[in-house]
Amino acid sequence: MRIKNRITGLLFIGTTAFSAFLIIAVIILLLVIIIIGGKETFSWKFLTSFPEDGMMKGGIFPAIYGTALLVVMMSIAAVPFGTITAIYLTEYASETSFLAQTIRFAVRTLATVPSIIFGLFGLGFFIKFVGGGMDNVFLGGQLKWGQPNILWASLTMSLLTLPVVIVSVEEAIRAVPREMREASLALGGTKWETIRRIVIPGSRSGIMTGTILAVSRGAGEVAPILFTGAAYYLATLPTSLSDQFMNLGYHIYIMSTQSANVDQTLPIQFATTLVLLMLTFMLNLTAVVIRSRLRRKAK
């Protein structure tokens, strides 16, 4: 009886262990295959040159540039907005006020909305309503702003990443010790002065974490930009807000599903995927490191 128990136990533990290592194995497999598939093509030249031959050869620089530009613009919108909202929630709002609870609820809900919905909103609101409206009012109906472009795409993305920023910054602000705020107030500091001189500098790492996590998501998400501004082949880099842009994730999607000669472009596809993976990995790692240092400081 005891032996039977023993065996059952070992089997059970074995099954759980197997599950865990199965997951790890698949992850490693994925990484290995991507690396193998892409390492031949991956090179400095690949990263810095333009595509040639109708995407059959060449590099992916415009995709990298477009992705970078997208996340920079997205951050300019999302980080200040999210930070200020987080400041409001922690410093100005009473825990039970209606506005505070509504904002918290809305932020939580926003975090769970599927990313494609943001794309819908971007199309219907930013492009058609705002952009179309701008065209009607300023350009007499001529079509310029009522189209997909990098401006609308980055605004769409900023909505997607807003919850991430708010949550990270809130965590960091709460980590600033109460005693420091009291010290400032006891010296005759006003609320705003305390926030400006003590709280915000003290939550710098949280703001950084939030920004990096937002950037990481913004670089990897494709669904919201499918129809708000991403393009597959552009002859030139975007130079104005009304231009479209290329994007790493979008590039992978189109190339792997719709390119004319999938076999020939396969190495480029793998290499591009590798680039995207490396990018998100480095970003996430940086954020995790900063965050764990923040948590250790708070203890």
């Binding site: 598939g37 670089a219 990897g220 994730g249 992978i252 793998f270 995927t273 993976l277 998100t280």
Partner: peptide
């Protein structure tokens, strides 16, 4: 794994 963009997983699945 949580940090993999879904387009990467899609690519892996497709290929």
């Amino acid at each position: 794994l949580a940090g993999f963009p879904s387009v990467v997983i899609g690519f892996f699945a497709l290929m």
